[in-house]
Structures are given as structure tokens and as C-alpha cells.
């Protein structure tokens, strides 16, 4: 078996896990197990926020090091789940390299929910959290409408590769502006619950949770970096909706 190609495929697996939103601990653990399953004498993995470094000692005596730089993150838990299942299969069956590459390609092609479903989910989340935080039916409706605008802004932001922190600020400011505008026109709405509903859409829950789990797993560097980013995003959201408070 071509060892260098195998290491490359292992990194592919790690990259899929990383870009789809798995914790560092899981990535390192998966690569260690896969490496051991293929008979490498020693596997050293280091994963920090945007890069994976992998060194293996092959039975033939060769020592191979490869790295992978990760730039784009797109959370997709179905990919994490499938990649996890593939690594379990590899550990028990040790399949041929071609099979692994083919499976990896299949995982890469896993599609996200369609745009319509995503939009519906945005509306549902914003509307339900508006009711959750004490809004009425009209508030839930307005919250759903502003969720559509938030989704459109996120799409545009992703298209032009906008800084995610600034993007969060812009989206929460937009939600605030809508509420201010409606309030000025004369609608009697509960501004607080509408904005909170939209804020919940933007809150970086995954980043906060996974960074906590990283820190407990002993990956301090990644945990702290991810947590800092999440806190910055939360602050950006808070700054964004001050538009509402100053304007209204």
C-alpha cells in the first residue's frame, strides 16, 4: 500500500471532520486510531485551529509528515457523523485505499438541506424564540420576517466572504433597524422579544460548546482560540442591536 497516499487520505478524513465542526479531540483520536489500524508504529497528530499536522512511522522504516491548512469552515454534522462511521469501519475492516478514497468522496458530496428548508428553519427558530421570550403572535410574525432578511444578509455575506464577526454585527443591526422602523410607523410591538428571537439565530452555540469540550479534553490552545472567537461574535451581536436601543 502506498503509505504517502494513505497519510494523505487520513488527512482528508481529518479535514472533513474539522471543516464540518468536530472537536479537536475527536479529530486527533480518529487519526490515531486509523493510523494504528493500518499498522503504523507511531502516529503523532497535532490539530490547532486551522491546521492539522500528521507524522507517522511506517513499518517499512519510512517516516512521513504531512500538513493540511484549513481555511473554510462550514458546519455540517451529517458529514461529521458519516466520517465518524467511516473511521469506525476502517478500524474494524482495514479496507483498501481505493475504497476509503471513494467513501471520502461520497462524504464530501453530502448535501446540505435545501435553501427553502433553511429559510423555514430560520423563520421557525426566530419566531419560536420570540414567543419563548414573551412575545405574542404578531411579534412572532415580524420576527419571522426579519429572520428572512437575516438569512439573505448571511447569504450575501458568505458570497462576498465577509468577516464573520462583522457579519454577525450587521445581521443583528438589521433586525434592530426593522423593529425601530415598525415602531416609528406606529405598530405596537414587543421590541425586546423580537430582537431576542433574532439574536438567538446568530448566537455561536456550537463554537462555545465545542471549545468547552476541547478545554476539558486538554486542547487548551484550540479551546481558548475558538472561545475567544465565539465571545467576540457575541459581543458583535450585542453591539449590532444597540442600533435599536439608540434609535428607539
Amino acid at each position: 500500500m502506498n503509505e504517502s497516499k494513505l497519510v494523505d487520505s487520513m488527512l482528508d478524513l481529518g479535514e472533513i471532520l474539522f471543516t464540518s465542526g468536530a472537536e479537536v479531540n475527536r479529530i486527533e483520536d480518529t487519526l490515531m486510531r486509523v493510523g494504528e489500524a493500518y499498522g503504523f508504529l507511531r502516529v503523532d497528530v497535532l490539530t490547532i485551529t486551522a491546521s492539522i499536522l500528521l507524522t507517522v512511522h511506517a513499518p517499512s522504516g519510512a517516516i512521513i509528515t504531512q500538513t493540511r491548512r484549513i481555511r473554510k469552515m462550514e458546519i455540517n454534522m451529517e458529514k461529521v457523523s458519516q466520517a465518524n462511521a467511516l473511521s469506525r469501519y476502517i478500524c474494524t475492516h482495514k479496507p483498501e485505499l481505493e475504497y476509503v478514497q471513494q467513501q471520502l468522496q461520497q462524504i464530501r458530496e453530502i448535501s446540505h438541506y435545501s435553501e427553502t428548508v433553511m429559510l423555514l428553519a430560520y423563520i421557525c427558530v426566530a419566531a419560536s424564540f420570540t414567543v419563548f421570550f414573551g412575545g405574542g403572535i404578531l411579534d412572532a410574525f415580524i420576527s419571522g420576517c426579519s429572520a428572512v432578511i437575516v438569512r439573505i444578509l448571511i447569504r450575501i455575506g458568505n458570497r462576498i466572504k465577509m468577516n464573520p464577526i462583522f457579519q454577525n454585527m450587521m445581521c443583528s443591526a438589521a433586525a434592530g433597524l426593522i423593529v425601530v422602523a415598525l415602531h416609528k410607523i406606529g405598530f405596537s410591538i414587543d421590541a425586546d422579544s423580537i430582537v431576542i428571537g433574532n439574536v438567538m439565530l446568530l448566537i455561536p452555540g456550537l463554537a462555545l460548546t465545542s471549545s468547552l469540550r476541547d478545554i476539558i479534553g486538554g486542547d487548551m490552545i484550540t479551546g481558548l482560540l475558538v472561545m475567544t472567537e465565539a465571545i467576540l461574535k457575541a459581543v458583535a451581536i450585542a453591539i449590532g442591536f444597540t442600533v435599536l436601543l439608540i434609535g428607539g
Partner: peptide
């Protein structure tokens, strides 16, 4: 009920 809908919405965001 609203919290459950919100949770499911987030699950959809994460493609679960």
C-alpha cells in the same frame, strides 16, 4: 414547545 421547535431549527442549521 417553542424551545423544542428552536432546537430542531438549530439541528437543521447544522444539517442533522
Amino acid at each position: 414547545t417553542m424551545a423544542v421547535i428552536g432546537s430542531l431549527g438549530f439541528a437543521v442549521f447544522f444539517n442533522i
